[in-house]
Design a protein around this nucleic acid. Sequence first.
RNA 1: GGGCGGUUAGCUCAGUUGGUUAGAGCGCCUGCCUUACAAGCAGGAAGUCGGGGGUUCGAGUCCCUCACUGCCCACCA
Length: 983
Amino acid sequence: MPQDLPKAYDPAAIEDHWAEYWVRERIFELAPQPAIPPESSNVDPSPDSAPESPGTQPRGDGALDGQANSPAQRNFTMLLPPPNVTGRLHMGHMLNQTEMDILTRWHRMSGDRALWIPGTDHASIATQMMVERQLATEGLSRHDLGREAFVERAWKWKQHYGGAILEQMKRLGVSVDWSRLYFTMDERLNVAVREAFVRLYEQGLIYRGAYIVNWCPRCQTAISDLEVVHEEQAGKLYEFSYPVEGEPGSFLNIATTRPETMLGDVAVAVHPDDERYTHLHGRHLLLPLSGGPGDHSTNRRIPVITDAWVSRDFGTGAVKVTPAHDPNDFALGKRHNLPSITVLDESAHMTAAAGAYAGLDRYEARARVVADLDALGLVVSIKDHLNSIGKCDRCGTVVEPLLSTQWFLKIQPLADKAIQAVEEGHIRFTPEQYSKTYFQWMRNIYDWCISRQLWWGQRIPAWFCDSCHEITVSRQDPSACSHCGSAALTQEKDVLDTWFSSGLLPFTLFGWPEHTTAMDRLYPTQLLITGFDILFFWVARMIMLSCHFMLDVPMPDGSARTLADAVPFREVYIHALVRAANREKMSKTKGNVIDPIGIVERFGTDAVRFTLASMASPGTDIAFSEARTEGYRAFANKIWNAARFIFMNVERAKEAGIPVDLSELAASSELKPGALASSAESKPGAPSIASSAMSGSESAPPPRLTSIESRWIQSRFNQTAADVNQALKDYRFDEAANLIYQFFWGEFCDWYLEIVKLRLDFTDRADKQATAAALNTLLEVFEAALRLLSPFMPFLTEEIWHAFYNNNPPARSIALTRYPQPMPELICPNIDSEMTILQDLITAVRTARKEAGVEEKAVVPILMRAAADERELFESNHDIISKLARVSTLDFPNTMPEGARSNPSFDVAIVYKRTVDIPAERDRLTKEVARYEKEQTNAQRQLANESFLAKAPAPVIEGIRRRAAELIVLLEKTRSALDSLNT
RNA sequence: GGGCGGUUAGCUCAGUUGGUUAGAGCGCCUGCCUUACAAGCAGGAAGUCGGGGGUUCGAGUCCCUCACUGCCCACCA
C-alpha cells in the first residue's frame, strides 16, 4: 500500500482519471447474452427483495469482474430520463443522476443484472429554436434554407453541441451503459415511432381535425396544454355596449378581457334564466366596428343566444362568442351551430376578416378597438382585472388560442388502462401521494394534440391526396393514394410532439415493434426516477402508451400479457426540486442557478453527490447548501486520512515482519451474482484475513476477535450495513447517507481508530498475533466500509480501494465487488451496550477534566464506584480508558469524594486540585436536579395511573420503572453534590 | 375554484406503525497544532415541536380548526 498519499484529499487529482477509466474499461456495460429461460413468472414486482436473493448459481468462469449473467440474477433496469440535446446539466439532473447512480451501483453490487440506459432527446421545439437562433446570427431564417437544408443543419448542430450534457454526465461518474446510448431520432426509433403512429391511426385513436389549440405565435406551432404555463397577470376587464338591432338606443353590455377578438364575434350568449335579458332572446345585435370604424350601416348582425354555461355573476352576465379564438366559445359555437371567423393569424396579427384592422398586431389592435369603441360612446367601463394568461413553456410568448387543423390522440382509452395499472398496484409511486396527482390528471384528461408545425422532429407519416383529398397513413412512403390510387400525394408537413417518441421509449428501446430477446429479458424496467415536473409530460404518457402497445406483445413463454406485465416500469420514485440556498427556485432570470460542474470542481463530485443524497428526503425540496457540501468534503477528507493511517500501519506491520495477505479479504468481497447470502466473510471469533499468513505459525490457532473494540466495530458495521440496505430499499437516500456518515466518522474514526492504536504495537516485545488480529479486523472493516460507501462516493472509494490492494485489486472496480450484506450473527447488542458504558465513562471524565480546568495533556487518576459487572468492564479495559480519557490509575474506593459525576452505571471523580468555577458548577447541578425532578414527576404520575398500567405495553412500563429507580439514585447523588458545594 | 405539501435549535433539515430523556450537520462558546486528519480533536450552550381545541393511560406523531407559506391542476368571458 502506498504511503505517499497527500495529506489532504484532492478530488481534482483523481476524479477525471476514474471517470475516464470507467468509460474506457466499459465497467458498466451489461454483457449481451443469449436468450434466457423465462423468468417473468417469478419476478418480484418490487426490487425490494433483490438483495435477499438467495440464489446459489455460481459463476462458471471464475473471473471476478465483469457482469455475469445468471438466470438466478434479478434485473435492475432503468431508463435515464433523456436530457434534451440542447440541455446543460443543472442541479436537478445531478440529483436525479446521483439517486439513479446510487441505486444502480447498489443493485449491481448486490448481484443484480444492473442496466441503466442513457440517451438524449431530440427536443424538437427547443432544438429548432437553438438552430434558428444560430441562423439568425448569420442573418438567415429557416425559410431561407428550406426544410431539407434546415434539418441537415439541425443534425450538424446536434452532432456538435448535442453531446455536451453527456460529457458532463461522464464527469459525474454515472454508471450508465454507454454502449447502449441512444438518441430519440435514431433510425430504429424513428421506425418504431412511425409504426406506433400508424397503428394508433388504424385503431381509430388518432384523428385529424380543426379545433382550438394553443398556438405560439413566436414558435409558429401548436403546443399541447401541458406546454402552456399559466401566469397571473394584471389586466383589464372591458365592458362594451352592443346595439340591439331594430331598437335604436337599446344596448346589450358585454364584458371581455380581449377586445380585439370582438371582430370575430358571431353571437352574444346569456344564461337562459337570466331575467335581465329575457326580452332579448332571439333578437340580434349589430356588432360595432365590424363594418369598419366609419361605416355602421354594414355592421354584422349577430344573434343573442342562450346557454346555461354562461355565468350570471361574472361581468354583465352576457358573453361575446368568438369560436375561432377561445376554447369555450368554440364549444359554444359547436352547440349552437355558429360559424367561426378567424381574425388573428398565426403570428398574432389581425387577418383580412378584421377589416380595417387587418395587419395590426394583436395588442395594437386591442388599443385601436378600444379607442374606436370609445369614440362611438360604446365603452361602458374599463376595470382592473387579474387574469391568468397562458405563455409558451419554451419561449414565454403569450399563447393564442387558435382554430387550427391538427392531429390528436384520442386519449381516454389509453388513460383508462393507465389508471387501472396504478389502481391495481402494477405501478407504485414513491412518495405515495403522487399517485393522487396522477389520478387527478388522468381522470380529467383531454385529447392530446400531437402535431407540431416544426421541421425538426419525426414527420407525421400521412399523405394528402391531391385528387380525392383523402389521407393515406402508411408505414412505408406510399406511391399512390390508398383511396383513389392517385400518385399526386403530398406529405403532411407537421412533425410529432417530442413527447410522443419519448413516451414510447420503454419498449421501443428494446426493439419494438420486433419481438426481441432484449424485450423478453428486460421489459418492463424496474424503476423510473424523475422529478414531478415531467410526471404528466413523460411518466403518464409512457404508462399510457406502454400499456396500450405492450398488451399486444406476448410474454416470453408465448402466453398473453396482462396489464401487470405491460406496464413500462414497476416503480416510480419522484424526487424533490433542488432550490437555491434561500429556497427560491433556481432560474436563469433570477441569476441564482448553481452550475453543478462548478460546485463539483470546487468540492469534488463525491462531496456534491453526498450532499444531494443526504438531503434527499422524499417529498421535501432541497435547498442546496454549500455549507453542507463543505461538510461532506471534510467527510471525504476524513476517510482519506483514515486510509493514510491504515496504510501507514500496514507498512509498519511489514517492517515488523507481520505479513499482510489480502487475498482472503479480496475473496470475501467477490461479487457472486445471485449468491449473496453465502458469505465468505469472517465469522465471529475467526477473522478471515491474514490468519493463514502468520509468520512461522502455521499450526497456531487463528487470532481471535476478543477485544471489545473489534467485536463492537464488527457489530456496528453489520448493523449499519443492515440499515443502509433497508434505507436504500425504501429510497431513503438521506437515511442511508447519514447512517454511513455516522458510522464512518462517529464510530469508526472517533472511537475505533483511537482504540485500535493501542493494539497496533509493532515493537519487538509486542504480541505479534494480537497485533495481527487487530490489524486484520481494522483492514477488514475498513475495506467493507469502502464498499458500503462506494455507491455514494464512487471516486474516493475507487481510489482508496485500488491503493488498498496496492493497485492490484481483485476486480477492475470496487463497483464490481459485493455490497456489504449484514451478518446478523455479528450484531451484538451486549457488546454495543458495554461499549456505550465505556464511552459514557470516557466522556464523563473528559467533561470533568474540562470543568476542573485540567490541562489537556495532563494524566489524572480517577476514582469510581460501579456494580460488579461494570467494575469488571472498566478494569479489563483500563488501557482504553487511560488512553482516551488520559487517565492514570483507576480505583474503586469505599467512599466517593465530592464532585463525582453520576450515571446509572457508575460514579466517577477525577483526582485533581479543583479549580472549578463554583457558581457555574452549582448552576449546572441545579439544572440537572430540575431536569431529573421533572422527569421523575412524569414517571411517577404514569406509574400511579392504573389506566396506563393496564393499557401500556409491558416493555414501556418496565422501562419507566427502571428509569424511575435510576432517577431516585441520580437525584440523591446530584442533590448531595449540590449540597456539598453550598457548604 | 379544486387538489397536494410544509411550519421542530440561530440556519438547513431528520424524527418509521402514537411509547421511557426530540436528533444531526452548519453556526456559536471553551480548550487543544494529542504523529491519519486544523477540511482536525475534545467539551459545552441552545428547542413551551406555528396557535387553539380534541381523541388517548400517553401526542412532534392521529382528528378538528385557525394562521402563515410553497407547489400542482383548472375553459369563467
